[in-house]
Amino acid sequence: MSYLTLAITLIFVLIPLVLSKTLNLGLERDTIIATIRSIVQLLAIGYVLQFVFETENFIFIFLMVSLMIVTATLNARKKGSSIQGITWKVAVTLVFVEILTQSILLGFKIVPPTAQYIISISGMVIGNSMVLAILFLNRFTSEVEARQDETELILSLGGTPKQAIHNQLIQAIKASMIPTIESQKTVGLVQLPGMMSGQIIAGADPIQAVQFQLLILFLLLTTASVTSVMLGYLSYPTLFNQRMQLLRKT
């Protein structure tokens, strides 16, 4: 695709701008900023990736993955600001998920150990893990707040913090995983995944593209479950003190 062709695709930005202006939605400024940011960020990352893929240097791969984890952590932690030490809890979770998935992929030689594969897959894993972390933290903090009576009841009957928070934790884990599971049920019927469509457009064999997409879908199931479970079990103890009392927000 030439830059001229790419420029023509800005028609797709023009349509929402016209709609926003006509209907007084007030989204023109945000739409323009989002468009400029996406152009600059994606072009920049395109050149960075080109450089990293060409050099095949492990340090650059490590730096790229680290940058992804730091950015995802900073984004996800906002939803759990009421949880003590949420930044490192999210970071540890993302690092663990990344190590786990890459170990399986590279250990079983499912994908070759090249920058092209490691970085692309890491982007999908970390991005998905970040969204899961946000969904989980959002639900978990509201469950804890809404069901304080239940937590207090179990503590008052001699239950441990883990027992007192169990139902809220399970609800939040389930709720955060449902979108991943549900979207997999309709994949291929309702939507064609972006990565698979991209491969097909780029001329890849559709069956090969499907196989690779399946790998990613399975990977994302692990990502979803490990992220929410791990973040949940790292987070709940900070809601209580040593005397097994539910800490109130001050």
Partner: peptide
């Protein structure tokens, strides 16, 4: 503070105002 919290809460039972039920 000499009591283990779990032991204390079994010794001193409490019925809450809202009588929450599981």
């Amino acid at each position: 503070t000499a009591y283990d919290p779990v032991e204390l809460r079994r010794l001193v039972g409490m019925a809450l105002q809202s009588a929450p039920m599981v």
